[in-house]
């Protein structure tokens, strides 16, 4: 339902972040994330940064699969 785009924060000014996704740049609202800094990666939806991204999808998936092979617990 929600096209999300992972993008890097280039700069922040007055609650607005300039984000860069492979060279496509746009200003989006940074109102929903308090401690945003340039260099952070964020998930962007409809002109709003909705969450910080903390990992690559490959690493995340690897960790989840490993936890599944172990005791079946993940750190959710």
């Amino acid at each position: 339902m929600c096209v999300g785009l992972s993008a890097r924060v280039v700069s922040i000014e007055d609650g607005t972040a300039l984000i860069d996704a492979s060279g496509a740049k746009r200003r989006v609202s940074a109102d929903l994330i308090d401690d945003l800094e340039p260099g952070d990666y964020v998930m962007v939806h409809a002109g709003v940064a909705i969450a910080k991204i903390t990992d690559t999808d490959a690493d995340e998936s690897r960790k989840i699969m490993e936890s599944l092979d172990g005791n079946g617990e993940t750190d959710h």
Binding site: M43, I53, H76
Partner: peptide, 11 residues
Amino acid sequence: FRNCYLRVVRP
């Protein structure tokens, strides 16, 4: 239940 989108979704 499992959260498999840990890099974006916090509890």
